[in-house]
């Protein structure tokens, strides 16, 4: 009997604990959501924007809600390209200020997420110093050393592997003079990227968490470390005044391919030079010859 009671009490106790836990979770969900939004901002927005830290590639977002209304901001967040294509004058000016870098559509963006982001930006704008006031990676203002530039080049072409296992830039990008047959062309030529992203700070912030939809999944689990970012920025700064790579490398690559293919055909003909060509043709030929004689 005593045992029965204890069991009942302990069951009731467990139920209470569970209910209390559930209540805590529900109460906690607001800060959790804010935390998640901040994390999202850090991963997807802070690579181009600060809140009160000045402009990077994109504008400083402090008090952005006072510059444009919520409806416009939500529409822009959901699809920057669509607003831009609609001929919106303000979006056009943003595009010009960013030197032709169009804001990519953020991954998994939804009306709810856009709303949360705007709430976060508003709250951070009110703080004396927002957690997003500084760039993600601090880059010194001093001139880069020769060694840093050379290390950056080695990282770019792949001769020095990236610490976290990311693929070398050359896989998809080119820089004038990086390598003989040129770099990859899945992504844009990066010779002038330093200018396009408005200098060291912008480029370093971009590299700390590449936001484009092609790069994001690739580097999400293989981020660059701060030393690598510094060296890559040093290398790209040294290349900023070169001319972009031409398509000659691509043409040469194709020509070499054609030459190799022709060689392959010659080889096949040689290897199978005694191939069986036909019984009947030989017979006919032999018959014709015997008729002639």
């Amino acid at each position: 009997m005593t045992v029965e009671v204890t069991r009942k009490v302990s069951f009731g106790g467990r139920l209470l604990v569970r209910l209390a836990g559930f209540a805590c979770l529900t109460l906690d969900s607001m800060p959790l959501q804010a935390q998640e939004t901040a994390e999202y901002f850090k991963r997807n927005c802070a690579n181009c924007h600060t809140i009160g830290g000045g402009r990077l590639v994109g504008p400083d977002l402090k008090n952005v809600g006072q510059r444009k209304d919520k409806e416009w901001l939500t529409r822009f967040l959901l699809n920057p390209k669509a607003v831009m294509d609609s001929g919106d004058a303000y979006a056009g000016r943003l595009f010009q200020d960013s030197r032709g870098v169009l804001m990519p559509t953020a991954p998994d963006i939804s009306a709810e997420r856009a709303d949360n982001l705007l709430v976060l930006i508003e709250a951070e704008s009110k703080l004396e110093r927002s957690q997003f006031a500084g760039a993600l990676t601090a880059i010194p203002d001093r001139p880069f050393t020769e060694q840093e530039m050379e290390h950056g080049r080695l990282l770019f072409v792949g001769l020095k592997p990236l610490a976290n296992g990311g693929a070398a830039c050359l896989s998809c990008h080119s820089v004038q003079g990086a390598s003989i047959l040129g770099g990859g062309q899945l992504g844009p030529d990066l010779t002038a990227v330093w200018n396009k992203l408005q200098g060291r700070k912008g480029l370093a912030a971009w590299l700390s968490s590449p936001p484009t939809p092609t790069m994001q999944p690739v580097y999400k689990n293989h981020p660059l470390d701060s030393q690598e970012i510094l060296e890559l920025v040093a290398y790209l700064e040294s290349a900023k005044d070169e001319r972009e790579t031409s398509s000659v490398a691509r043409f040469n690559f194709f020509l070499l391919g054609l030459a190799g293919t022709a060689g392959g055909f010659v080889l096949f003909d040689f290897v199978w030079r005694r191939r069986f060509r036909a019984v009947r043709r030989d017979l006919v030929h032999a018959g014709e010859e015997s008729e002639d004689t």
Partner: peptide, 24 residues
């Protein structure tokens, strides 16, 4: 494959061989 491609020359050899076989 990425480790092999970390030397540009090796990358070019691999890419060129692949292109030759593709054209064939």
């Amino acid at each position: 494959i990425l480790a092999w491609n970390s030397h540009p020359l090796r990358l070019y050899i691999l890419e060129l061989s692949a292109l030759v076989f593709a054209l064939m």
